[in-house]
């Protein structure tokens, strides 16, 4: 489904030169403070002393979108983003293993909204993009164990919705109809939503202190993209 959407977006043809479609991939870091706290709780809940082998590292993210330049100074548009990270607590010895994975991903629906800082330049342009977005997060917690030749696996899914902005500075190089772009920014979660249990939308995740858990995607973002000017 996701693949189909991207192919379709890349196949759009625009009739105006003020409109451009773009695709980008980048690398982001993620705060995930609440989720890391849950992961730490996993460590304490193990009968043995496991190790955190993945601690929600930075990872690749992807975006596609389109925007329209207005008066060669502003641009506005829409974009879809996708990112993922994960955490793992793991233990293995001769008698078996136990693994607790937290697989977290998001799909964001954003609005590129920015300024072209040097609109008179033809070769390189610099941009500032505020990029507000709705971030739809999903998290799957999977606990698997292998013990005495028997395997067990349990999982639970969660969802949440955040409102964020991602102020970014970018540089773009136009080559004929193509524009190469490089953006760097910081993703700020403005409003974190409750993390609801998939199977019961009235249940949401709390930490051991009783505080609501947020999926915080805050972090640096570096994105390289390619746009087609229509």
């Amino acid at each position: 489904m996701r693949l189909t959407l991207i192919v379709t977006a890349l196949s759009i043809t625009c009739a105006t030169a003020q409109v451009r479609l773009w695709g980008a991939f980048g690398y982001g870091t993620y705060a995930m403070s609440d989720i890391k706290e849950i992961q730490s709780d996993f460590v304490g809940d193990f009968p043995v002393t496991p190790q955190i082998t993945e601690n929600f590292p930075g990872y690749w993210n992807y975006e596609i979108g389109g925007e329209k330049v207005i008066d060669s100074t502003y641009f506005v548009g829409a974009c879809l983003g996708y990112g993922t990270t994960a955490g793992r607590v793991q233990y293995t010895d001769y008698s078996g293993s136990i693994t607790a994975d937290q697989l977290v991903s998001y799909v964001s629906v954003g609005i590129p909204l920015g300024l072209i800082l040097n609109k008179n330049r033809k070769r390189y342009t610099f941009t500032f993009d505020l990029r507000p977005a709705f971030v739809f997060s999903s998290m799957s917690i999977e606990i698997a164990s292998v013990l005495g030749g028997q395997s067990t696996k349990e999982s639970a899914g969660f969802r949440s919705l955040n409102l964020s902005i991602q102020p970014s500075l970018g540089i773009r190089r136009k080559i004929s109809k193509l524009i190469l772009s490089l953006d760097a920014g910081y993703h700020v979660t403005l409003l974190g939503g409750r993390v609801f249990l998939d199977s019961n939308r009235e249940a949401y995740l709390l930490n051991k202190k009783g505080d609501e858990v947020k999926i915080d995607w805050s972090g640096f973002r570096v994105t390289a993209g390619l746009a087609i000017v229509l």
Binding site: T53, R88, T92
Partner: peptide, 24 residues
């Protein structure tokens, strides 16, 4: 398109780390 799809197909971070306690 194929390269892009492969890129997206591998876009999800799947944790693979393990910790082995070397006890006897």
């Amino acid at each position: 398109h194929l390269a892009f799809c492969l890129l997206l197909g591998s876009c999800r971070l799947v944790p693979e780390g393990t910790y082995t306690n070397p006890i006897k």
